[in-house]
Design a protein around this nucleic acid. Structure first.
Length: 120
DNA sequence: AGGTTGACGATAG
DNA sequence: TCTATCGCCAACC
């Protein structure tokens, strides 16, 4: 099972109105230390195929905003999701306290199941 | 084969 | 709270 494939699956499972962090996704993919590769994955294969705009770093900063075609695109999409995005000296930011995706046990298992089915 | 580079994260001071 | 540093690992020289 390709790690990038898992990243794609996880991203597609992020609920509308929520965001996830790179580390969180890496964890759900079974590779807690591959947070950097998550960003790399989004940039390469998955760009345009998954809602990568719902992925932020551990501080809630939209660190990848610059890599979108239009700088404000990510912020705009998040806003349409009902997420409040604010401008800070560090860049566009979301309140993780309010909007971070809280994974339930069921959701984690659901993801594992999809990983297995893809492995066939 | 070896060094550098990241859409990152955790920790020490 | 903020900075410096280190660990991490796939991709790319």
């Amino acid at each position: 099972m390709d790690f990038y494939k898992r990243v794609g699956i996880v991203c597609n499972c992020i609920p509308q109105g929520k965001v996830a962090t790179y580390g969180q996704i890496a964890l759900l993919c079974g590779k807690p230390k591959n947070s950097r590769q998550v960003g790399y994955a989004l940039k390469m294969e998955l760009a345009g195929e998954v809602p990568a705009y719902r992925v932020v770093n551990s501080k809630g900063i939209l660190s990848g905003a610059f890599h979108f075609e239009m700088p404000d695109l990510q912020k705009m999409l998040l806003t349409e999701d009902g997420i409040e995005v604010t401008w800070t000296p560090e860049g566009w930011k979301v309140d993780l306290k309010k909007y971070q995706w809280q994974n339930s046990m069921a959701e984690a298992e659901e993801l594992q199941a999809q990983f297995v089915s893809e492995t066939i």
